[in-house]
Design a protein around this nucleic acid. Structure first.
Length: 213
DNA sequence: CGTACGATCTGCT
DNA sequence: GCAGATCGTACGA
């Protein structure tokens, strides 16, 4: 169920970014369990990617964990306000990562609503990278943690997202990366579409059948 | 040491 | 649709 470290240590960050769509990210933070289906990701492809924090081999205190073995959390503060959560991929020395940009809340909705300071559920509740970390309770305190432990981890629950509903496009907010800003490294499923597939999964669970594996 | 700038979100128009 | 919030990091002097 829980993805192990070998999953993250593969050598194709773009494929991993797409494969993470439909997986379930879980957190146990401040004694509270919350989770959501990953519905938006972006790949950041190491030292040759102008949009990547490790472009041209840049290595600082902030991005140090990108240079570690895959399967760790790379978290940083963006625009002085929002924490952004990345999964480090590949092996030590090759600084690649997947930014988790959107989730569809699955468990702990009450906690998520409280953390987001929102009254009622709506589709875009955690669609956007700053909303994801707020919903899941992630801050800079979790930077560098190991995703095979029990604070932040990702599971395969067998939710099947058909390839035809996964959209592909340019990454958001990286105009400074010049030509690399046009690379098709962003993957997403509209939250409303995701909810339709969720209904199907729940139906099959209720019917005594396991969700698609 | 000083300054510029974000892998964004919200609320108001 | 747009401006304002807000602060750590990076980088040059």
């Amino acid at each position: 169920m829980k993805l192990d470290l070998s999953y993250y240590q593969k050598n194709d960050v773009v494929s991993l970014a797409k494969d993470l769509i439909g997986k379930v990210i879980c957190t146990y933070i401040n004694e509270q369990f919350t989770s959501g289906i990953i519905i938006e990701t972006e790949a950041y492809a190491g030292t040759t990617d102008r949009a990547c924090h490790a472009y041209n081999g840049k290595r600082t205190l902030r991005n140090e964990v990108m240079y570690h073995d895959g399967g760790k959390a790379y978290i940083y503060l963006c625009y002085g306000i929002h924490y952004l959560f990345n999964v480090v991929t590949n092996i030590a020395g090759i600084p690649e990562a997947v930014l988790i940009r959107g989730i569809y809340p699955l468990e702990g909705l009450e906690v998520i609503l409280k953390r987001r300071n929102i009254e009622n559920f709506h589709f875009h509740l955690a669609f956007g990278p700053g909303k994801v970390t707020q919903a899941l309770g992630i801050t800079i305190l979790q930077n560098g943690i190991d995703l095979s432990q029990n604070t932040i981890w990702i599971e395969n629950r067998g939710f099947f997202i058909p390839s035809e509903v996964i959209q592909v496009g340019q990454r958001i907010g990286v105009a400074y990366a010049k030509e690399d800003a046009f690379l098709p490294y962003r993957f997403w499923v509209e939250p409303k579409i995701c909810s339709e597939y969720l209904k199907n999964c729940y139906k099959s669970i209720i019917g005594g059948k396991k969700a698609n594996e």
